[in-house]
Write a protein that binds this DNA or RNA. Sequence first.
DNA 1: AACACGGGGGC
DNA 2: GCCCCAGTGTT
Length: 346
Amino acid sequence: MEKTWQLALLKWYRENKRDLPWRRSRDPYAIWVSEIMLQQTRVDTVIPYYQRFLALFPDMKALAGAPIEKVYKAWEGLGYYSRARNLQRGAQTVLERFDGAMPREAALLQKIPGIGEYTAGAISSIAFDQPACAVDGNVMRVGARLYGDGQDIALPATKKYWQKEALGWIPQGQAGDFNQALMELGALICLPRGAKCAACPVKEWCRAFENGQVEALPVKSAKAKPKVERYRVLALVDEKERVLFCRRPEGGLLGGLWLLPMLAQGEDVESYIAKLGLTAVERLPLGKARHVFTHLVWEMEGELIRVCGGGSLPQGGAWVEKGGWQALALPGAQAKLVRALEEELC
DNA sequence: AACACGGGGGC
DNA sequence: GCCCCAGTGTT
């Protein structure tokens, strides 16, 4: 054990790192986009989105000036849609408040919408080689095992602890590679379950490996069970074969995305239709669908209702021609019902 | 400190 | 079906 685990890890990273698209760029904007996409999202999922997004919005100005609808469409299916909105707001912020140049210091980066402690440290270290830490779930897992630490990583206080520790680990002038090396170790070797300790470059230094505690660490307290909500999903189809979609308000669940109107259990379908000045001509079931969010479950029952007449539109509502909804950003939550609708209409 | 906020992958 | 994840913003 002639050297430190930090240098062993760095050496391993340089020999084994994956060839990822954002690692081919030194453009802070490109690195920023990748870090936002990678929040709570796996590398394999992100890659195609990243490439499409950079082709669509190659620089900060292109993103800042784009219609938000296009930004949402590019994000469709990635989830956590406030990331897309904040990324654009962030680009506008950098152009207006920072003269178009990304700040180098983590503390300044954190003033940009969508950039929190982790992402500020990641951009500062990776794009600018500033000595900042970037502590995420991976880094806490690696730390907990290396040091045999049983603190609950679900607690904010534990994150604070590891941020302070991780700052002290950074080899002089190599923050970018070192931080990426920690994440790479967490992603490839020090897995949540089934860790590949035999292939680990720092196993000689690992307390959990030494004590047979690898699977027991890190400690993470359980989250509350998701709440179940039941909805009737309506595909209202008018005489011209147009379908009513509603755009969700910004900020909340699926903010900015388009959905078929949903009625909570107990709400009356007839009166909803009547309120829009419509008359139901024909009704047929579209089947059931279930969608699980982190904190919520939607149990939906779809119904196609052919209507005539028409007066008012609901909040955020619009009649969309058959097939026209391909251009809208639709969440995965209703994908099954929208497919069933398409089958009925063709 | 707790909660809201998506979706996909692994077993 | 259950668990996990390259977090941030709001309250």
